[in-house]
Amino acid sequence: MTTLLRATDITRQFGSVTALDGVSLHLEPGEILGILGDNGAGKSTLMKILTGYQPPSSGQIWIDGAEVALRSVDHARSLGIECVYQDLALVNGLSVTHNLFLNREILRGFPPFMLDNPAMRRRAREILDDIGVNIPSVDLEVERLSGGQRQAIAVARAVGSAARILLLDEPLAAMGARESALIIDLIQRLKGRGDMAIIMIMHNYAQTLEIADRIMLMQHGTVTYEGRAAETSVSELMEIVRRGYRAARSA
C-alpha cells in the first residue's frame, strides 16, 4: 500500500526563531502515530503545516505518493486532511445534527435554501452509529453533552466529511478516565476501518504508548526519537527528554 502521508525535511522559521528544523514523518493507512513533546517542541507548528494553515519554510509533503503544496485549510481538507482542535469548533447552542453538518448542510430541493432537517438527522444517526458514538439524541444541543461526547462529535464531524488523514490535537486533554476511554475506543474503531490514518498530538506518554502504533518524540523543533509503541517504554522516553534538556542547557 502507498504511504498515505509523507513529509520530508520540514523546516519553519519565524524570523530568527526556528520552530521546526528538518522534521520528517510518514503515515501508513490504518496507522495511529502519536507525536509527543513539551510546549514549544514544534508540535503545533507541524500540525498547522499539515492542515494547510501555514506553509513550511522548506520541505516537501506527499499525499498518496504525489507531492502537494497545501495552499489553505480548505485545500488540505479537499485532499482528505481534517483536524480536530483542542478548543473544539463546535457551536454550543446548536444541536448535534447541526454541528455535524455545519456548513455542509443537506438542503431540500425546493425551496433551494431550506434545510432538510429530517435527512440530516437520519444521516447524523448513521454517522454516529457507524463509528459507535452513543448519545441520547441527535437533537440535543451540544452544550448539554459531556466533554468526551463533545470530543466524539467533533471527531465524527471530521470523519463524516470523508477524512482519510485525521489530526487530533490533544484529544484526551482535561478528560476523566471514563471520558478518555470513550475517545480511545472511538480512535481504535476508526483505526479498525483500515482506510484512514490518525496523527495524535499528545502530552501523556503512557496513554500515547497504549493507543498509538508508532511514537515520535519532538524536542526543540527536531525529532529526537521515533519507534514502534510496542518497543518503547515511558522510562526510555523520559531519559531522552532529560538528555535533550541537558544538551539544551549546556549549549
Binding site: 478548543d87 469548533a89 463546535l90 457551536v91 446548536l94 455545519l102 448542510e105 435554501f113
Partner: peptide, 23 residues
Amino acid sequence: QTRWGLHTIAAGGNLIGAAEAGI
C-alpha cells in the same frame, strides 16, 4: 429552517469555530 439562520446562530455561538467550518 434555512442555512442563513443556522449560520447566524453559529457566527454568534462560536465565531472562530464557524469560520473554521468555512462559514
